[in-house]
């Protein structure tokens, strides 16, 4: 796969999918205007405001693809360093969407490099068959941890597709572009992910 590391903002014609919770892209428009005016006035203050507003968002997007907080933080830092180095070209940028895409690209690129170097694989841990049986009492927090675990155990491409669709709110077309695969493959991987998750999470279903 070609590294998807370029920090390019989503093309202006690309539809930004509305987010289904209250903090949608739309509601934060005044925030963007504020950041843009700060960028003109004082780039250090701009950077501080941008960082403090969006660092968690960037970090969490990366974490969902690379479930290790220390690595996610390192990569999130790199995202903001790239932004800082390009601060003179950000005049038209819609920051939230831009940072989100940069975070996803940074994570995918990291996974890619990791693979090429033959480093430790991300999908460690027992396979689905080896997963322990259902616990007698299931707490909500444990459920979430189990679901994360199940997602992390999906095959790499499958997991990327699922996470990008489920949590990064990306359309199949956007995912296909980011991963350099066809929309058809994205759809196939999506169903594969759901089938595998249904098996590994069967104790929580029905």
């Amino acid at each position: 796969m070609k590294a998807a590391a370029t920090l390019s903002p989503p093309a202006s014609g690309m539809p930004i999918r509305t987010v289904n919770h209250s903090k949608g892209y739309f509601c934060t428009m005044p925030e963007n205007a504020r950041l843009q005016s700060l960028l003109q006035e004082d780039e250090h203050q701009f950077m501080e405001a941008l960082f403090k507003t969006y660092f968690p968002l960037v970090c969490k997007s990366i974490y969902r693809l690379i479930p290790d907080m220390a690595t996610a933080e390192d990569l999130a830092q790199e995202v903001f360093i790239k932004i800082w180095n390009r601060r003179e070209q950000l005049n038209e940028v819609y920051f939230k969407a831009y940072l989100h895409r940069a975070a996803v690209n940074m994570a995918l690129d990291h996974i890619d490099k990791h693979k090429r170097r033959g480093g430790p694989h991300l999908e460690i841990g027992p396979t689905q068959e080896e997963l322990p049986g259902p616990a007698p009492v299931v707490h909500l927090k444990e459920t979430k941890a189990k679901i994360q675990q199940a997602i992390n155990q999906l095959p790499e491409k499958c997991r990327e597709v699922f996470v990008l669709s489920r949590y990064e709110e990306m359309s199949y077309k956007e995912i296909a572009q980011a991963l350099q695969i066809s929309v058809k493959t994205v759809e196939n991987q999506m169903i594969t992910a759901l089938k595998k998750l249904r098996v590994s999470l069967k104790e929580y279903l029905e």
Partner: peptide, 29 residues
């Protein structure tokens, strides 16, 4: 339905993920 339920089940899986510490990260940055 099985596919749909699996999808729905995973909705909030990352709600409890660790929060990065903004202050220390900003200092480092």
């Amino acid at each position: 339905e099985a596919m749909r339920q699996t999808w729905d089940l995973t909705a909030n899986a990352y709600d409890n993920m660790p929060e990065p510490d903004i202050a220390s990260n900003w200092e480092r940055f």
